[in-house]
Design a protein around this nucleic acid. Structure first.
Lengths: 243, 243
DNA sequence: GAGTGGTCTAGACCACTCC
DNA sequence: GAGTGGTCTAGACCACTCG
């Protein structure tokens, strides 16, 4: 008794620190500005470095900070809006297209993708790898799986075949598409392409393209969660409230 | 010399451990099964508990594990697909509606929302709080901001006014909507509603509803990232490849 | 009260960037 | 080589759930 407990459920130090730092970022720092190093910040706030890092990790997750090994921690700009509306992330040929095709193989898709492709998923698929760059920064990697039934014969190999696959898809009508978004962590190869460390948080966008009721193509796109805000622009109208 | 370095760039322990555990989950554990406790797992794999926890955090981020203080770590079921298509997450009145209205106030929106509302954002807005439950589990919280110009006079207070606001919106035509998804971390109040700890990763879905070119309503929905896969069903068709 | 995950510490060393 | 963030350790204590 006698201890006037201001908060019945005291919040963790790292969470309080996150709030304090967040407010400091708003009022005392400009975008791109470099913060004091972790050891100094920890000393300044009277916590262990690990605790400070927990707070910084939160802020990085929220897109407020950017940390680079060997360089320092900087104040991140607001997340860029990346348009992922169907057609807007044009697979090819668009003016100002930000996608770059890296290569193409003919391999069996992973089980999760095979399930989406249904009967077409059992055999090998054209597998096209692409990387999306925005404002000079890599923001996404993507793997496109296309059933060979859709493209027909494609003798070329490697990156050239990738272009051929995209060309074969060019202008095809699709009845509808289904898209889902979930949180993931970057695998080693994606992390390298995205200029991040393995395990970095990413937003995984999976899209099914349907023609006459059958899934003819699937894309799995991996967006950097720290720098990207996925924008689904111009959704159809309709009633503001269903029911 | 003499040290045959198998991997030129050795991966961190926690990342390797993540892979090992991930494979063990696939082959040796069933959904819902409880894992050995952290101290034992750390000993078993010959690492410090903190390192083991780093691996577990990764797997939790990927939706593979579920950790509950005082209980243990269990194998999580596959993420549930949560439909967030416009109209599908009906604001009210739908059969099987999974949203529950918590209350309603007339307050000035935060700056970020005010910016989206444009000229209407300067004054106070109807602010409706809702919670979405799916399969008996809270999956999302949402705040709906509506300009008073759209609803007219609404004398009631609290949760009843919330219903009145929703009723006023019922069946309204909207020309188009714009939606974005980004990663965030749960604030204390959202965390409580979602049965999570502060800082838990969430997917923040922001939607603008437009009528005659003006934004009349904005929703900010916060989904649990560990258990939810956001599904945008039945997107419009069109060309499979734009260009 | 026993057992769990969550927080926090103090220190060490490593990988990387830049001068 | 100096300075940064990233990894890892060994230990302590706290908050929570459950029998």
């Amino acid at each position: 008794m006698g201890t006037t407990q201001v908060e019945a459920v005291p919040e963790p130090k790292y969470w309080h620190l996150r709030t304090v730092l967040s407010e400091a970022l708003d009022s005392e720092f400009a975008v791109g500005q470099i913060l004091p190093n972790e050891r100094e910040l920890a000393a300044r706030y009277g916590v262990a470095r690990a605790t400070l890092r927990q707070a910084l990790e939160q802020l990085e997750l929220e897109g407020r900070l950017q940390r680079r090994r060997g360089v320092g921690t900087t104040v991140a700009p607001p997340r860029m809006g990346v348009d992922v509306a169907p057609g807007a992330d044009a697979w090819a040929g668009r003016s100002g297209d930000a996608w770059r095709t890296e290569g193409c193989t003919l391999t069996a898709p992973p089980a999760a993708v095979a399930a989406l492709l249904g009967e077409h998923g059992s055999g090998p698929c054209h597998t096209v790898r692409r990387v999306r760059t925005e404002h000079g920064q890599p923001v996404a990697t993507e793997i496109l799986y296309v059933t060979p039934a859709l493209t027909g014969e494609l003798p070329e190999e490697g990156a050239e075949r990738g272009a051929a696959v995209l060309a074969a898809l060019h202008g095809r009508q699709v009845e509808r598409s289904e898209r889902s978004v979930e949180l993931g962590s970057a695998r080693a190869d994606d992390a390298r392409r995205l200029d991040r460390l393995p395990g970095a948080p990413v937003l995984v966008v999976t899209t099914r393209y349907l023609v006459r009721g059958a899934t003819v193509a699937v894309t799995v796109a991996t967006y950097r969660a720290d720098t990207c805000r996925l924008v689904f622009g111009d959704l159809p109208g309709g009633e503001l409230l269903a029911g």
